[in-house]
Each structure stands twice: as C-alpha cells, then as structure tokens.
C-alpha cells in the first residue's frame, strides 16, 4: 500500500489498544523498508533482523505514548528503528577500517544519485557541495561515524566534522 494511504496513526492507536492484527499490518506494510534501513546501518542481515524485531517490540509497547502532535506516526516508526540500529553499531564500538567485504556490500556511489527525487530535503541537499552532501548521506543512511566518513573520503577528521556541522546548519536554514 502506498505510504500516503496506509493510516499509520490509526495503526498505532490500534496497537495501543492491544490489537496484534494492527502490528501485523504495519509489518506487512513496512518490514522490508525498515529492514533495508537497519541493514544499511548494521551491515549484517541477522543483526538487522534482530534490530527490526526489537523495533517492532518497542513500537508495540510504546504505541500508547506516541504523540501525533510531535511528528508523523510513520516518522516515529522509522526513527525508532534507525536509533536502535545506530545504538547497536555505536555501542559495539564499530569504528574500524571498513573492510573489503563491506565495500562489496556498500553502495556504488550512484546510489546517492537522487536528483530525480522530489521533496524539500532533496532540493536543499542539492545545494550542498557534492562532498559535503556525501558526508550527510553516509552518516544518515549508512550510519557512518565521523572517522568512518573521514577514512572513506580520505579527508582529515577535523574537516569532516566541520563540514557536517556547517551542512546541517545550511540544511536547517534551507528548510526553514
């Protein structure tokens, strides 16, 4: 079902009432996409499935405290999953040279060709210098740390930190 039609908010309300069918519907709707998000960050299918499992549990238990005024229900579902994945890789202390196997798994650069995509974030990202844009996308989509990005781009760590900080400020202004 297209994201615009699936009623995420009603689904969370039903989960809060203990309706497991609602959780099943959410799973059918989004498990592949959520697993994709977790896998890019975790880089291991079994680990990514553990993350999605934990995310669905957290969604089930937390559905009652979801506040639609704070953001979209769909966004909450994705944030829960992404932050679980980020916590797993940061807590594991993964900050090692990206191995050759990962290079195969990792995206070819053209994955970040998103010019055809619409939406404000994409318009604003296009205004960034390409190297800085790549930093933002590696961080958000791949869960790379500052030093992983520095290594990948062959750019000093301090430069990467400054680029990311300034790029975020630019995005904020562009999207205001």
């Amino acid at each position: 079902m297209p994201e615009s039609i699936f009623d995420y908010e009603a689904c969370l309300l039903a989960c809060a009432r203990g309706d497991q069918q609602a959780l099943r519907r959410l799973y059918e709707q989004d498990s592949s996409r959520l697993l994709g998000v977790a896998l890019r960050i975790a880089r291991d299918k079994a680990l990514a499935e553990d993350i999605v499992h934990d995310a669905f549990l957290k969604i089930w238990r937390g559905a009652g405290s979801f506040d639609p005024c704070r953001g979209s229900a769909r966004g909450w579902v994705y944030s829960v999953t992404r932050h679980l994945a980020l916590n797993v890789v940061r807590n594991s202390g993964r900050d090692v040279p990206l191995s050759d196997e990962h290079e195969q798994l990792a995206e070819p650069e053209h994955t970040f060709e998103f010019t055809a995509r619409t939406g404000q974030i994409h318009t604003c990202l296009e205004q960034l210098d390409p190297a800085r844009r790549t930093c933002i996308l590696h961080a958000y989509v791949d869960g790379y740390s500052h030093s992983e990005i520095a290594q990948k781009l062959g750019t000093p760590l301090g430069t990467i930190k400054a680029w990311i900080k300034r790029s975020l400020a630019a995005l904020r202004e562009c999207m205001a």
């Binding site: 996409r33 998000v37 970040f112 998103f114 995509r117 994409h122 996308l137 958000y140 989509v141």
Partner: peptide
C-alpha cells in the same frame, strides 16, 4: 531528514 530513509 525522514525522506532520506527512502535511499535505503
């Protein structure tokens, strides 16, 4: 940043 999840 949510729309960027679609890149995965």
């Amino acid at each position: 940043l949510l729309p960027l999840t679609a890149l995965a």
